[in-house]
Design a protein around this nucleic acid. Structure first.
Lengths: 260, 260
DNA sequence: CGTCACTTTGACCGATTTCAAGGCTGGTGG
DNA sequence: CCACCAGCCTTGAAATCGGTCAAAGTGACG
């Protein structure tokens, strides 16, 4: 049961960011130990952090073996111990309400940090689950916090991540926006995030089911299906299973919510 | 103007520890004016701030004269200089999109901090406007950031606020929730916050227009009007102008979104 | 007393959800 | 190798919720 086999190798999958070797030059050169092979993905993550801080981060980050789809890194109410950095794959965070309904609260791609939902209460607000085979590094939050004093860059970096989380949710909370606008926003957001990491902004594989996407975007699964069909008819993109190829990114961007 | 005790006049100044005696013991024995409650949060925003840090905060906080309804503290794209603490009244932050439509991004009541939307970019993402006559204190963010080293508590406090903002938006992005659920959530929020201040959790005055409430909750103004009427018919509450009297809080709580 | 801004109410309409059925695909076992 | 099954995805039709438009009601204030 190889999950990855299902995903077309022709389409560059965000699960297999093989073309990361073509790291754009706008991304700072990294210290050798952080540049090694499997750690390439962290480039963007640390871009706003100086050399000293990068070393400090390198010292407390713990690399873990890849996990299977369905693996949970933590569950609601677990003690907040660490934050995590996605190296490859994709992770969702979700909440189960009293009716047993699942609501997706976050979606994390390679290079992104998750798990900060525990800062406030000391325990995780949501559960975090691998959407597919994924490699994830762990950073003990206590150690991270200790490093703030010596490395204000790191503290600022965490704050930036928190602000990004606010921004992400702000985009999705625009209730007056139609379902079309929401999907357009979602797609351009993904595109942005991939581009920032040197991956193709137009061809990628969404590592999650329609239902998960729908839950994240905030529409019914059937509506999501119809929306994809509609966008395809308009020549905005083409979808084959989970592989997406955006053919008219400018129009999608025009449709999406630009809160800036 | 308004006969009923409004939220604004009931809340004491942030630096006057006058009514410390009335502090409910579950609020960590801190003066209530130093505690602030974001939506649905049981934590006091200052809960982790020690005496030293409070003094440091007192040294850099600047009190301002009350401003009229409609006053702007900052506008989109203004340089990010300060964050603000509401002493009385109510403040909304909003965004104007390219179509000229206004979208309310935040609503802040006495004791709450706003303006952090500028941290990420160095300029404010939104505009901040007084919904009513309001008194607001100002904290220069540069000074605040400088205090982080000596007072990690303060830094942690700011992080908690950021996390609260995330949670806030998370609630509002629950699109599958009906308009009824959203209003119920909003009302129980307000009720909860007032109760923690030792004010009546069932009788209060909303210091803002229906349109503002509607924009914040994410429905049309007319819908908001109908919802109030519907709730009133069901005996959940009674509304006269901006005065609200909740008669069946448990039912409202049951209807509202309770993440975790 | 008139104006203006806000609120309420009614009628209509459209987008999205819901319900229901059919189709596709990958996995499994004969 | 094929048939079948289960889960996911798509499509259709009906129902519903909330938005929009329009008009009337309310209250504050000059």
């Amino acid at each position: 049961m190889n999950m990855q086999a299902r995903i077309s190798t022709e389409v560059p999958s965000i699960l297999e960011p093989a073309n990361l070797k073509e790291t754009p030059k706008h991304i700072n050169s990294l210290s050798p130990q952080l540049c090694s092979h499997r750690e390439m993905h962290k480039v963007c993550l640390f871009k706003s952090v100086d050399e000293d801080s990068k070393e400090a981060l390198g010292a407390i980050i713990k690399h873990r073996k890849p996990v299977q789809k369905g693996h949970h890194f933590y569950r609601q109410s677990d003690d907040f111990v660490s934050v995590y950095v996605v190296q490859s794959g994709a992770i969702k965070t979700y909440d189960i309400n009293e009716n047993g309904e699942e609501h997706i609260t976050g979606l994390y791609l390679p290079g992104e940090l998750f798990g900060i939902d525990g800062i406030l209460a000391g325990e995780h607000k949501y559960s975090a689950e691998a959407l597919d085979t994924s490699a994830v590094s762990e950073i003990n939050y206590h150690s991270l916090e200790l490093s703030f004093r010596a490395h204000p860059d790191i503290q600022r970096w965490i704050m930036e991540i928190l602000c990004s989380e606010i921004y992400q949710r702000q985009l999705l909370s625009q209730r007056q926006n139609s379902a079309e606008e929401r999907l357009a926003t979602f797609l351009t957001n993904i595109s942005d995030r991939l581009k920032r990491r040197g991956l193709s902004p137009t061809d990628f594989s969404l590592p999650m089911s329609r239902r998960d996407i729908a839950g994240y975007v905030g529409v019914a699964a059937e509506t999501m299906s119809r929306l994809f069909a509609r966008f395809q008819n308009r020549g905005l993109l083409s979808v084959t299973g989970r592989a997406v190829s955006i053919s008219d990114l400018p129009t999608l961007q025009g449709m999406s919510v630009t809160t800036h």
